[in-house]
Write a protein that binds this DNA or RNA. Structure first.
Lengths: 334, 334
DNA sequence: GTCCCCAGGGAGAGCGCTCTCCCGTACCAT
DNA sequence: ATGGTACGGGAGAGCGCTCTCCCTGGGGAC
């Protein structure tokens, strides 16, 4: 037994056929005699043959990998991967891809260098396409993908219109659900903590909440982290001590808000009702558990992967947005 | 402008040199005249050339990707990627790899098919090596990697001895820190919630705790999820109502335990002191925040990547275990 | 019997790169 | 002048696969 890995040639020799025939058997194309198929499979078994992926890619121009890119300026790795929201996206993507024998390549695009690296990687055929999850509105990676004609699908509508597929949630409708819940619970003095207002989703959630709760409802801006939720809630409370209902634009911030309310001596939901957004794991583990607006993130991740694969299959495919519907999940906090 | 991507040949023609010279400029090897370098770079710029990764891989036998595998029987995607612990590992790995122009390929190995796929992928040269994070003790993937001579590094010591590098924590020492903290706080009636006892780390933590707290300290077994922490704490409380100090083997379960104690009317830390393990994000966002044993997971992830790259560089390299030291982080719960 | 067709299989041309040879030239010491 | 020795650069052989083209032979239609 030599050290070099067996090649098609070796298998062909053992089976007494040509390289082409072995290739046909492996890829299951054209009509190959059943008897010969058996012989070839036995030869593959015997030699321990494994097709060389690089060689195959070279001719098929497919790698079987797609880039899963977390994009946006300055998002440190620990913050991104620590976010349960991102975990859910990954989960949906992986679940879908595995059924198609493809795998995601994790890339962080938090600096200009890193973004250039992502584009280069795709142009070099390091992946067949990209799934982009932007953390900031001014991210230019989607536009660069479009310009370079690289197959890509976004999570969330791009800030400026772009011929590219994306999945998104009807954030505005979701926020309206939250507002209605608070009003139904008899809350009169409402407030809200929004996400960063540069992000369309944040603006939509704020707008939706105000659609129902009134345009002058006070808001404090956070950035979707636990800490920013605490800070924003503290500011809100300082300015409006009579608050009895708050909508916080994601669960992580809502968990932070919960702590601030508790320390301020306000009981939830008795004194202040709280509604979050996302229905991510912190919502379930909080005390009280959060009433929240569910976003089917896993499904959205899977759909994103589906759209990308379709686009890779047919490059002429027209860009499609897919919008998901939110749902209210009632738990203890409101 | 044609549709086909420019190749080395094209660049060479434009620059008026040979393919080999362009290759040298790109890879920065051997001495190429500065003037010619400039010309070549200009030609690259002009043609918009991007080297084809598959072609390069075919001859270098390197892909620039490594597999990041979450292994073990039946770990649904959402459970794995939702776990903040795994997010920290990923974060450390990504952070280290990016400095080396490598990227992790995310793979889930929760079924026999998926495990076979991982091995096949590696044997086909789809990745240069593997980082294995096992969720179960009886995972056979490490052994299969060793058998196939595939470069691999584990997170956590393998259940049975294997010639393979791994990173781990001194769990026993960590659990001793927890026990000492509880004793120092004057707690007399201790109990503990362990992880699944099939996992070496869980056994070590239990053993370490009992080293200090006494061999007969009651334990209830969980499986590291929030829910299992609730259930285990409830059992513990039912059997030992006089408990005043509890060590829970990870923060996620500790957060669950906290909720159970709260509902049982026990104040933390006044009535019952609680110490967690990991120092993951839930520890900070709990109310009260958890006193816990810190595991430098990001560093461990980075070290794992470092070991793997070293092994890939030098296949003859001897397997090395790297053990990290835990540290007590004091917060509100004990 | 002749013709045609088609299934089954081989030959061989690439895919785009790296890297080993090899050759020419300039520069040093002898 | 002569040998030695770098260094700069070209030629060309693969890396291992897919896929088109072509050849062969057997069977059906006429």
């Amino acid at each position: 037994m030599t050290d070099a890995a067996p090649t098609l040639e070796d298998v062909a020799r053992v089976a007494g056929v040509s390289r082409a025939t072995v290739s046909r058997v492996i890829n299951g194309i054209r009509n190959v005699d059943t008897e010969i198929q058996k012989i070839v499979r036995a030869a593959i078994e015997q030699t321990g043959y494994a097709p060389n992926r690089a060689a195959r890619s070279l001719v098929t121009r497919r790698t079987g990998a797609i880039a899963l890119v977390v994009s946006g300026a300055g998002s440190p790795a620990d913050q991104v991967f620590g976010d349960p929201f991102f975990g859910r996206v990954v989960s949906g993507v992986v679940d879908f891809l595995r059924g198609h024998r493809m795998h995601p390549l994790l890339m962080l695009a938090d600096t200009e260098d890193a973004r250039a690296d992502v584009i280069a990687h795709l142009r070099q055929g390091g992946a067949d396409g990209a799934l982009l999850v932007s953390t900031h509105a001014d991210d230019d990676l989607p536009a660069r993908c479009v310009r370079a004609r690289l197959p890509a699908v976004l999570f969330a509508r791009p800030a400026s219109s772009l011929p590219i597929s994306y999945v998104d949630l009807d954030h505005r409708a979701g926020a309206r659900l939250a507002a209605r819940r608070l009003l139904e619970q008899g809350r009169k003095n409402l407030g809200t903590v929004s996400g960063p207002l540069g992000v369309p989703a944040s603006r939509d959630r704020l707008a939706g909440f105000r659609d129902v709760a009134g345009a002058r409802v006070p808001n404090e801006e956070g950035n979707f982290t636990h800490e920013s939720g605490e800070a924003a809630m503290a500011r809100l409370l300082a300015a409006h001590s009579d608050l009895d209902g708050v909508f916080v634009a994601n669960d992580l911030m809502a968990a932070g808000a919960l702590g601030v309310l508790h320390r301020a001596g306000a009981r939830v939901p008795e004194d202040v009702a709280l509604v979050g957004f996302d229905d991510s794991s912190p919502a379930r583990s909080c005390r009280p558990a959060l009433t929240t607006v569910r976003q089917p993130v896993e499904q959205m991740g899977a759909e994103m992967a589906r759209l990308l694969l379709a686009r890779i299959e047919d490059p002429a495919r027209a860009p499609t947005p897919v919008i998901f519907e939110p749902a209210l999940v009632v738990r203890g906090s409101a």
